[in-house]
Design a protein around this nucleic acid. Structure first.
Length: 280
DNA sequence: CGCCTCCCTGGACT
DNA sequence: AAGTCCAGGGAGG
């Protein structure tokens, strides 16, 4: 059972959860809000600011979680193949902006847009003799003009970013409260933010607000459900409407249990690797 | 409620 | 070389 505790840093970072990361030699470096994290291949974190974080969610009882989500052959296979893949716990504001930017986009483009945003609006710092840009604070993006934000390559999402930053800045949405809320409560609140629908909301909830029952349903996950789970979750229509998303999520949690979000991560990783999609 | 169209960018293909 | 096509979520009609 001890082997289950191993963290596979490469797989965890290369699984569509985070974007502002690069590998330099044997270390991964990444921007996490107002901090820069440096990760060794065993998963030990040294950081620029030493802001406390459980980035790899070491507090989770991963043996228990794996046991809980291994409900069928496909999941068991994905878990076995990518043992050590973890859900990462990110800075909520950066996570929110990242997934607003992600809508109608792909990993390469999201990465470049976010790098532009950090470079343009974030504070430049030196860490380990390398240059980094922290993720901009809400106040900075709330003050920025739409055109300035657009110049980062985010297109029509620029106004969503500015509005989201304002909502966070003025505490109309408070991440600490969302942490304590139930999945349903937190989701309803976060979906009020422009540019945040079901899928983006679930990413933010799962990757930064400790909601392990969130299960982001993007094109890839729908494809996976159609391919492997058509009997369990029959998908009648081509387009996933809001109502259907909700019904599907209920079925998914019923099948995979309270840690469904972890199963999503394993399945997503497996399928994208099968199609040899590029990561960071 | 479901369905349609538009919003942008960048890479692939022609 | 310039044009067309496409992937990818959310909002509004």
């Amino acid at each position: 059972m001890q082997k289950n505790r191993i963290i596979n840093v490469d797989n965890s970072i290369n699984s569509g959860q985070v974007f502002l990361w690069r590998k330099n030699g044997k270390y991964w470096y990444g921007v996490n809000g107002q901090d820069i994290l440096k990760i060794t291949d065993s998963g030990t974190i040294k950081s620029y600011q030493n802001i406390k974080t459980d980035f790899f969610r070491k507090r989770d009882n991963i043996e228990e979680i794996i046991k809980s989500i291994s409900k069928d052959a496909i999941t068991k296979d994905a878990v076995k193949q990518y043992l050590g893949l973890r859900i990462l716990e990110q800075d909520p504001f950066q996570c929110l902006i990242s997934f607003i930017v992600s809508s109608n986009s792909n990993i390469q483009k999201i990465k470049s847009s976010l790098e532009n945003i950090s470079r343009k609006f974030g504070k430049r710092v030196k860490f380990d003799n390398q240059e980094f840009f922290l993720f901009p604070k809400p106040s900075k993006l709330a003050k920025a003009s739409i055109d300035e934000i657009k110049s980062c390559g985010v297109g029509y999402r620029a106004k969503f970013i500015k509005e989201a930053a304002k909502i966070v800045l003025y505490k109309k949405i408070d991440f600490e409260t969302l942490q304590k809320d139930s999945y349903q409560e937190a989701k309803e609140k976060i979906c009020q933010i422009p540019g945040v629908g079901n899928k983006v909301a679930d990413c933010v909830l799962l990757f930064s607000l400790n909601k392990l029952d969130a299960f982001p349903l993007d094109r890839w996950m729908i494809r996976i459900l159609e391919k492997y789970y058509s009997k369990q979750f029959q998908l009648e229509t081509k387009t996933i409407t809001e109502k259907q998303y909700e019904i599907l999520h209920e079925k998914i949690v019923k099948h995979f249990g309270p840690y469904a979000g972890y199963s999503q991560q394993f399945l997503f990783k497996m399928e994208r690797e099968n199609y040899q999609k590029k990561w960071l």
